[in-house]
């Protein structure tokens, strides 16, 4: 009999559900207007109460899209943490009720582990061991993956995440939120002619708070001399900021690869959609003779397929939890 798992993700803004069969993703749905149309409502704003409105429609959509019957599910996987407690509670409570009614086991999943295991949702899958740079709005970390469920945190941000550096810079430049994709777009039209200093932190740790402040000082100084400075130099400013953020990320990943001798490098998380990071990683890989892996965008941002993949590996190890499980706000990989 095949292993059929339903997975729930509700750790931050998006509510998502996915169905996986023997390690192959059958559906990966994120609550959006289309799903809500079926229920006659609209998607609420980002907040934990929104998950309560989203969860049933999105689970229903994932099950229908997968073309399965819920009675055939082998287990239910859910994000236990890290994340916002109120948001996690919705997913955890739903999973408990669902598991109890179907009399199937529950699998707890670490959201940060799942981001990395999203690489196993489809080919090409990185062979073990590999290094993963997880970059998103809230996280920036380098993880050594020795086995599917055995990971070691080599370094992480000591203040802001890389995604936050993009968004806050965007705010300083007067761009709409989220600014990451806009900075990427304008950067393509400009040249990195402005230099921003590199932060001084531990060998494999990151810091983006100082960069944010130096960008602020840089803009204030130039606007004083020319009030139209941003307007006239937007593309070059974006190119410069993006180049600096990407160079910081890749430099640390390179050090990690050289230190560990691992030749398979992956990126994960929402910021891996950034075109300069993608091309920079590929170039570095070619130059150093390393193989690089970038998942499809659908598997980069928060999604339930990555929870499903992780759940599948845990299912094979019979790593289940009981009805007394509670969500956790902090949880290292």
């Amino acid at each position: 009999m095949s292993v059929l798992i339903l997975a729930i993700e509700s750790s931050c803004d998006d509510t998502s559900a996915s169905v996986i069969q023997d390690g192959e993703v059958l559906s990966n749905c994120i609550a959006n207007q289309e799903i809500h149309k079926l229920y006659g409502g609209v998607v609420p704003e980002a907040a934990s109460r929104a998950h309560q409105v989203n969860i049933v429609p999105v689970v229903d959509a994932a099950i229908k899209k997968a073309g399965i019957k819920k009675e055939n599910l082998s287990a239910i996987a859910f994000t236990r943490g890290p994340g916002l407690i109120g948001s996690l509670l919705v997913g955890v409570s739903f999973a408990k009720a669902f598991a109890m009614s179907l009399e199937i086991p529950m699998i707890e999943v670490n959201h940060m582990q799942a981001h990395i295991l999203a690489h196993y949702a489809e080919e090409p899958k990185p062979p073990l061991p590999f290094l993963c740079l997880t970059v998103s709005g809230g996280h920036t970390q380098i993880v050594k993956v020795t086995d599917h469920l055995k990971m070691e945190l080599l370094g992480s941000t000591i203040d802001d995440a890389a995604g936050e550096a993009f968004d806050k810079t965007g705010k300083l430049l007067g761009l709409d939120y989220p600014a990451g994709p806009l900075i990427d777009k304008y950067a393509k039209l400009g040249e990195p002619i402005f230099k921003f200093t590199e932060p001084k932190v531990g060998e494999l740790d990151f810091s983006f708070s100082g960069l944010k402040t130096s960008i602020l000082y840089f803009l204030r100084k130039n606007i004083k001399e020319n009030p139209k400075f941003i307007e006239e130099n937007l593309n070059d400013i974006c190119a410069s900021v993006q180049a600096r953020i990407v160079s910081i990320l890749l430099k640390k990943l390179k050090i990690a690869a050289q230190k560990t001798g691992i030749k398979h490098l992956a990126i994960a998380g929402g910021v891996s959609a950034n075109s300069a990071l993608r091309s920079g990683l590929e170039e570095m890989g070619k130059e150093m003779g390393w193989k690089t892996y970038i998942p499809r965008f659908e598997y980069c941002t928060d999604n339930a397929a990555m929870i499903a993949v992780t759940g599948y590996y845990k299912y094979l190890k019979k790593d289940f939890v009981g009805q007394d499980v509670v969500p956790v706000a902090r949880w290292s990989v």
Partner: peptide, 26 residues
């Protein structure tokens, strides 16, 4: 955030104090 990092250090917080802009609550 930098100032809050310093307050936490003074209080004896052991964990890394990072920006909660995305997580909302740390």
């Amino acid at each position: 955030t930098t100032f809050i990092q310093n307050i936490c250090k003074h209080l004896g917080v052991k964990e890394a104090v990072v920006s909660p802009t995305f997580s909302l609550v740390n």
